[in-house]
């Protein structure tokens, strides 16, 4: 009996709290602030995401023959989760929007394609078959969904890091699979991607990197990619927390704080 009364009392208290929230005199800002913010932010987010990816995993993303089963599933998820994580934190803490990673992925997608079309194809004349960028949009949607459901950055980092890496591989494997088919080239068995990398001259890319996938993980035979994905998931969790540090200490913490005595 007592337990039932307590439950009813708790429910009544909760209803009153919600009503107070609903009746509160909210401040309303015109949507023009939203437009200016989201349009402007797209540029800086694209800049941060694209540069972080380019300088940590650029070569793996620039060329199809670098999209191997050994390094690509490990390096690229790490490099691409950093800024989505930072923006996810800012969007969730600042605006309670579980859209930060997805928004970042879309900005990154647009920036990557503008660059590939205008700078790589139009400027240097490489074919799109050689230079198509990987996408992280499906992975970002899943990571935002995890945050929405768990409301925990710790759980999102662990589950999200794993899902980010596997979703990255699965969603891009569709585009990559045709280039992994075997072909005979000058008496050697190579993948179609390797042949593309050899045929299109990259005079300032080191010659010793022509065949990218050549490491000892070959001893795992067909399981190479799964070992790489498992390690990539671990590294992506670390990348997620680098992004959290950026969001927490470089974007939110400085608000309203000043350096005295400069």
């Amino acid at each position: 009996m007592s337990a039932r009364l307590e439950t009813e009392h708790a429910a009544q208290t909760r209803r009153l709290e919600l009503r107070a929230v609903l009746n509160r005199q909210y401040v309303y800002l015109d949507r023009k602030w939203d437009i200016v913010f989201f349009v402007s932010a797209a540029f800086v987010i694209a800049a941060a995401g694209d540069l972080t990816r380019s300088l940590f995993a650029g070569d793996w993303d620039f060329w199809v023959d670098w999209k191997d089963r050994q390094w690509w599933p490990m390096v690229t998820p790490f490099a691409t989760i950093i800024i989505p994580s930072a923006i996810q934190y800012i969007a969730w803490v600042g605006f309670r929007l579980p859209l930060g990673a997805t928004y970042t992925a879309l900005c990154l997608f647009a920036a990557a394609w503008i660059a590939r079309v205008y700078q790589w194809e139009a400027f240097v004349s490489y074919p799109f078959t050689l230079i198509w960028p990987a996408s992280v949009v499906p992975a970002a949607v899943l990571v935002d969904w995890i945050l929405l459901k768990t409301r925990s950055f710790i759980l999102t980092s662990i589950l999200g890091g794993i899902i980010w890496t596997f979703a990255f591989w699965i969603s891009n494997y569709v585009s990559l699979a045709p280039y992994l088919q075997p072909s005979m080239f000058m008496g050697h068995m190579l993948s179609v991607a390797d042949v593309l990398g050899i045929q299109y001259l990259r005079s300032q890319t080191p010659e010793y990197l022509r065949l990218v996938e050549s490491g000892t993980l070959r001893s795992f035979l067909g399981e190479t990619q799964y070992v790489a994905l498992a390690f990539g998931s671990t590294v992506a969790v670390g990348g997620y927390w680098i992004g959290q540090a950026i969001g927490r200490w470089l974007a939110i913490w400085p608000i309203g704080r000043s350096i005295k005595g400069l």
Binding site: A47, D50, Q204
Partner: peptide
């Protein structure tokens, strides 16, 4: 932000394409 985008993405890709070729 627009300046940052051109600095960190648009022109960086042009520079990458140039350097890995010329």
């Amino acid at each position: 932000c627009v300046v940052l985008y051109f600095m960190a993405s648009f022109f960086v890709s042009g520079d990458a394409a140039w350097h890995q070729t010329a």
